[in-house]
Every structure is written in C-alpha cells, then in structure tokens.
Simulated assay, not measured.
Amino acid sequence: MEEKETRYKCNGKALLNALEPDKGFYYKRINRDRSVSKKYSFEAIQVFDMTVSGGPDKFYLHANIAESGATCMLRQSYEISEEDYKKFQLNKRGKYRLDLLTKASGGLIVRRKETASKRIDMRVRTSTYEQLSASAKKCNMSVTEYCRKVCEEGKVVAAFTDSEIELMTNIRQLSSHLSHYAAFLKNGIFQEMSKRDRLEYLATGESLQDYRREIKQVVTFLHKFVKLQKT
C-alpha cells in the first residue's frame, strides 16, 4: 500500500500551477442563507499530496487539503473506480488527475479563476512611487498591476524594449545568413575543392569575408543586448 501511494503521488497545487496558473482550488458549497442571492459560495483551499490506493475490489483517491486559515491539513479520501485508479497512474502531467478530484469529491472541490476582489489602499513616499512607476513601465504594466504581480509572484520579468527587439531582429536575420554559409562549407562546392584550394578560399574568398564580417556584427549585437539587460 505504501509503495503504491508513493509511486502514484502528485502535488495538486504544483500540478494546478503548471496547467492552469490563473486558477485555484475551492470548496463549492450551497448557500443556506436565503438573504444571499448567489446559490453557491466558494471557499479557497490548498490541495497538496494526491495519491491513489486500493484493490482488488475498492479503490480510493486521497488528498491532503488545507482550508483557509487552518494550521493543519486534512486527509480526505474518496472512492473511485478501478478505471479511474489506472488512469490516475498513467496521466502523470495531464488535467485528468485534477478532473478526477472534482469528480471523486462529487463536485465539492472545484477549480476556478481567482478574482481580485479585495482592495488595498496605501500611501507611499514620492521616491518609492517613482521607483515603482519606472519598474512598471519597463514591464509595460500599470503601477497597480505591477504591485499585484510582485505580491503574487515575487518577481516580474521586464518586457523587451524597442531597442532590444530591434537587436534581436538583426541577430535573427544575420543568423539566417550564417546558416547559409555554414551549409555551403559543409555540403557545397567547398567540399569538392582540393585542400590547397580550400585554404586559398578561406584566406581570400569574398563570400568568406562577408561571413566573417557578419559574425563580428552578431557578436557586437549580442554585446549591446547584454548591456541593455544590465541597465
């Protein structure tokens, strides 16, 4: 039993982040309060280790769940079919394992997009705001969106500037030319030349001079690109 659970285990939170990063796990409950217009309420939870066990007649899906504000996890077990048991083992990185959790729990555990429903108002110094504004501009974001991303993900990768895009375009064009020259040296007439003719061509060939010049251009562009990344 222990061996099977270890072998067929996955982390629900990690799997959800990989497949549906904009969603979270929730308990879906029916609202008993008639004064509330919405039929269902949703309580955010975290799903950690998911394992399967059982046989030969009964099979189970187990999930370690942490409710909002809880200091410990609860281990929930749901009965599943033998077919689901086998599919859980085979579908290591697919959505099937996530779908099975919803199915096995009878729709109690669902995945849904997390909405920004809470508002935070705060005051900062002018210098702090200017720093945030400059960082947000590099990422093509508003200050609000930038701050939210930093809080949620810890780090925001800056978008490419127009200068960086231009450099990348130039590098891509030159790399196409260099690939052409490389193919010529490997498979073209160059291979049919005698050793002496090859040496003479490498020393004086006009095409090869272009080849060398474009290599220097690529190196120059790469240096500029790296320098822009550091600024």
Rank of each mutant, 00 (worst) to 15 (best):
V150F: 03
H180T: 13
E166L: 09
D99Q: 05
R123V: 13
T126N: 12
K149L: 14
K87W: 04
I109C: 11
I165R: 10
K103P: 00
T204I: 04
L98Q: 01
C147P: 03
K95L: 00
L174W: 03
K186H: 10
T115Q: 09
S127W: 03
S194G: 15
A182Y: 07
K113R: 09
C147R: 01
E114G: 10
K86T: 10
K113W: 04
L167W: 04
I171L: 08
H180K: 03
C139T: 02
K137P: 00
L101S: 05
M193V: 01
D121C: 09
D197T: 01
G154I: 12
S194K: 02
G94P: 00
T128D: 15
K137M: 05
K138D: 12
Y181W: 11
T161Q: 11
K186W: 08
K137T: 11
F88S: 02
R196H: 05
M193P: 01
E192M: 14
K149E: 15
E153N: 13
L101Q: 05
I165T: 07
T144K: 12
N170L: 10
L101N: 01
K186A: 13
A134K: 12
T204L: 11
E152T: 02
R196K: 12
A104L: 06
E152D: 14
L167P: 08
K186L: 11
Y129V: 03
F190K: 07
R112L: 07
M122D: 01
T144E: 15
K113F: 09
K103G: 03
K113N: 13
K95I: 00
L98N: 02
Y181P: 01
K149W: 05
S194D: 14
Q173W: 02
S179E: 11
V124D: 09
V157I: 12
G154V: 10
T204R: 14
M122S: 11
S105I: 07
G154E: 12
G94E: 07
K103Q: 08
L101D: 02
S135E: 15
M168A: 11
F184T: 05
M168D: 08
V156G: 04
Y181K: 00
T126K: 14
R125Q: 11
L90M: 08
D197K: 13
K186F: 05
S105M: 10
V124S: 05
A104W: 06
A116W: 02
E153S: 12
